[in-house]
Simulated assay, not measured.
Amino acid sequence: MSSITVVGSVNRDFVLTVKDLPHPGETVLAQHFVEGAGGKGANQAVAAARLGSRVRLVARVGADAAAILDALASEGVDVDAVRPDEGATTGIAAVVVDEAGENTIVVNPGANADLGVQDLPSRLVRSTREVVLVQNEIPPDVVGLAILRAREQGGIVILNPAPARPVDTRVLAAVDVLVPNLGELASLLGTALPADVDEARGLLERATLPCRAVVVTLGANGAILKEARSTDITHIPAPCVDAVDTVGAGDTFCGALADALARGIDLPTAAQRAVHAASHAVTGLGAQASMPYAAQLDVPAVTSAS
């Protein structure tokens, strides 16, 4: 079975659906309200577990997280390395989603901000081809050490640099696959946000990031991929779907990408599968609730390489 360690955040998500997102100073009435588990770390762990990987989550939660931990365990996520923090509350995300599936999110980090380097297992990589997946909703020193430790131990390292913030060059050089969206890529490179896929391709062609590959998620336009050993840019289009809620789509992408890479699948094929998984995720409400199982994907199931 493919093996993945996710080092990241756990949140309680409060999702409200509205006709249109409110303007500054405007009050609108919600049409629906859903509470569920979230946080990029937890979301990506669930996404990978639903596709069949053995997933361990390293995180911090508050004393109020018993139901969330039970829910993660029921998805097959190993939560033994999730440390309860009696002095803090679990992170909270307030999510507002409009009828077009667009959203705004405000996050209170809570216990996520207390995740420390001492919480990292000494062995992040436990088996051949293990993937270590990290995001930026936890402190920068933890992100950096997790990536460097995983590289030293021979793991496949994926960094989802969300939310956007500077990343040390030494840390980026230890990353196998960097997975930003367009805004995060522009932030890392210090450039303006690309207006379309062609501009995104041009930006990626000129990028001089030290990681081994970059996969840029483009929402409804799929993703583009560049490997350091090649000058080619590969565009992976997304299937046409009726989007209900885009929250968690990027996390689904990262979890599916990790699942495929942990099975020994080549990066372009892994990215294609991740695009299809993310496209499925936007057809339902809620981050984790709409994440697909392997049988629900309309692409060939991946199998472990011999």
Rank of each mutant, 00 (worst) to 15 (best):
A174D: 06
V247Q: 01
R165F: 00
V97Q: 12
L203W: 08
S122W: 04
A220H: 15
R273S: 02
G39L: 00
A243C: 04
A173D: 06
L133N: 05
R165H: 05
D70P: 04
V179Q: 03
A295T: 12
V131M: 00
P84A: 10
R123G: 03
V177W: 02
G38I: 06
V96R: 13
A73C: 14
S230N: 08
I138W: 06
A150E: 03
I138S: 01
S9I: 04
G248W: 09
G101R: 06
G62W: 07
S279M: 11
V131Y: 08
V197E: 00
R129F: 10
G219L: 07
T90Y: 00
T303I: 12
R206P: 12
D64H: 10
L209W: 06
A45D: 00
G286P: 10
P210M: 12
A192L: 15
L21F: 00
A213Y: 02
P161L: 08
A274L: 13
V55L: 04
L16A: 04
V7Q: 09
V18F: 10
R129W: 00
E26Y: 14
V132D: 01
V82L: 06
A295H: 12
A45I: 11
G41T: 05
V61E: 07
S74W: 07
L203N: 07
E205C: 13
T234V: 14
T208Q: 15
D70Y: 09
P166E: 15
A228E: 13
A71Y: 07
V214F: 14
N181V: 05
A146L: 01
G154Y: 08
R206A: 15
D141T: 01
P194L: 13
T169G: 01
A71D: 09
V282T: 05
I105N: 06
A305V: 04
A270V: 03
Y293R: 15
N11H: 05
A94I: 02
E184I: 03
D119R: 14
P84F: 08
R263G: 08
S3P: 02
V125N: 05
V302F: 11
I265F: 03
T89N: 13
R165P: 02
Q135E: 09
R170G: 05
A249C: 11
G190S: 04
I92E: 11
T89F: 09
L21A: 08
D80C: 14
L124T: 01
A243P: 05
D119A: 11
D242F: 00
V117W: 02
L29N: 03
T231G: 07
K19E: 04
A260M: 02
N160M: 09
A287P: 08
D251S: 05
L16G: 06
D242E: 05
V134R: 03
V171P: 03
T217K: 11
D242P: 02
V134T: 02
P24K: 11
S53R: 13
L261E: 03
I233Y: 12
N103G: 01
V157Q: 10
L209K: 10
V107C: 11
V107E: 00
D85N: 12
A277P: 03
R170S: 02
D114G: 02
G144W: 06
V125A: 04
S187F: 09
R229F: 13
R170K: 10
G101T: 08
P180F: 12
P109D: 13
V197L: 15
S122T: 11
L204K: 12
E26M: 13
G116R: 13
A271V: 11
V79Q: 05
V18I: 10
T89V: 08
N43V: 02
